[in-house]
């Protein structure tokens, strides 16, 4: 079957690509997309370790990892909603969605 390390390496690759997107995109929405990729990489890691732990301890009910995974989902959704609201607000006042041009504290 699939070794645990394959999932870890895939998640590391996804995380690194997400970091690359965050650091290189000029558009603020592009940066948000990169953050989503990084959060997904973390979710893959959590699910892989949840499976690993459940496999080692078959007698326990495997709820800890599931609740942890659910919390990460909730925080990701919250972060995207507030981030997009901020971007739209900044766009309305400054007429730009390029992160480098958002350089004033006062709109």
């Amino acid at each position: 079957m699939i070794p645990l390390s394959w999932y870890l390496i895939l998640a590391a690759g996804l995380f690194c690509i997400g970091l690359f997107v965050v650091l290189t995109k000029k558009s603020a929405i592009g940066i948000l997309i990169g953050i989503e990729l990084m959060l997904n990489a973390v979710n893959i890691n959590l699910a892989a370790f949840w499976h690993y732990y459940t496999q080692l301890n078959p007698s326990q009910t495997p709820l800890n990892g599931m609740v942890f995974l659910a919390i990460v989902f909730i925080v990701a959704a919250a972060e995207t909603a507030v981030g997009l609201a901020l971007i739209i607000s900044a766009y309305r006042r400054r007429n730009t969605s390029v992160a480098g041009e958002m350089d004033l504290l006062k709109g």
Partner: peptide
């Protein structure tokens, strides 16, 4: 949601 964000702020790009 991100798709809506892109379409609402597309003009400047």
């Amino acid at each position: 949601l991100i798709l809506f964000g892109v379409m609402l702020t597309r003009r400047s790009m």
